[in-house]
Amino acid sequence: MSTQTSFVTQATALPAYTSTTDLAISPPTREARGRARLAAASKDLRSEPGPIRFIIIALALSFLTIFVVLPLVVVFASAFSKGVSAYFAALSEPEALSAIKLTLLVAAISVSLNLVFGVIAAWAIAKFDFPGKTILITLIDLPFSVSPVISGLVFVLLFGAQGYWGAWLQAHNIHILFALPGIALATIFVTFPFVARSLIPLMQEQGTQEEEAAISLGASGLQTFFRVTLPNIKWGLLYGVLLCNARAMGEFGAVSVVSGHIRGETNTMPLLVEILYNEYQFVASFAIASLLAMLALITLVVKTILEQRLDEEQTPKDDSR
């Protein structure tokens, strides 16, 4: 657990990969954005005196600068502090390359599995009534309410040498902990809610009528899903996948517990950032961190675009006019 405490002390210095995990979970509701628009339109009705307005805006801006902009600038400034060539040299280190590769692989595995699980779970919850539905919805949120460290620890308890299945796994020479499967499992667990959470409200709002119409027109279950359900949720699905991916790449706590920190083998990018930093290799550390920061920025841009599309998807199309 020593890695954890050292991480906490440096948390303010390393905001890049934590920021990717702080994104909103469910898409902002239409009403929320509608309210924002309304507020903008009626600005003059409730305008504050000039000085007060100035103070409020200045406060918000300086807060944003100190806690978001400045750390982001620091990440890139430190990464490039010894020049562009040092930056790229740090990124092309075998350890760095292996970490990038592992991170991409883990993200690919967990995102694709969570895509399938998330769609199935959301489908089941939104389109059917069954006993235990509320429990299922609560369970889906569990990874969000549990500390990531605990999420990782669960897998240690299951698959570790002293764990429930540890002895059996060892006897059959199957490596889960301190290897790719463990890291992937922990990441899947932590990122499970994203896809399901972004789909459930959307699918509930859309109801089952279009599916019923498709079936009455002779469509099979699969045809109904691929021709009607999926096109209707595609933007919401992409939104969930995007957030899921950002979290999968940025996850630190859970992965840290199950990874074993084997250099060049089981270090993901966030883990490598911390290790390099602890070894005073600041340029290398911040170079990797800058990649994660860029991921966060790209995620934000795509997220904004997707939210606009989602708006269209959510617009009820069946009210009479």
Binding site: Q209, A213, A214, S216, L217, A219, N232, D318
Partner: peptide, 27 residues
């Protein structure tokens, strides 16, 4: 329902929102 060859019209139309009118009818 898919095998009964029954035309069903819903109160709230239930048109496929991502398809044109033409594709809706052709579905």
């Amino acid at each position: 329902a898919s095998e009964r060859h029954v035309g069903f019209v819903f109160q709230h139309y239930a048109l496929f929102r991502h398809m044109t009118v033409f594709e809706n009818v052709a579905f």
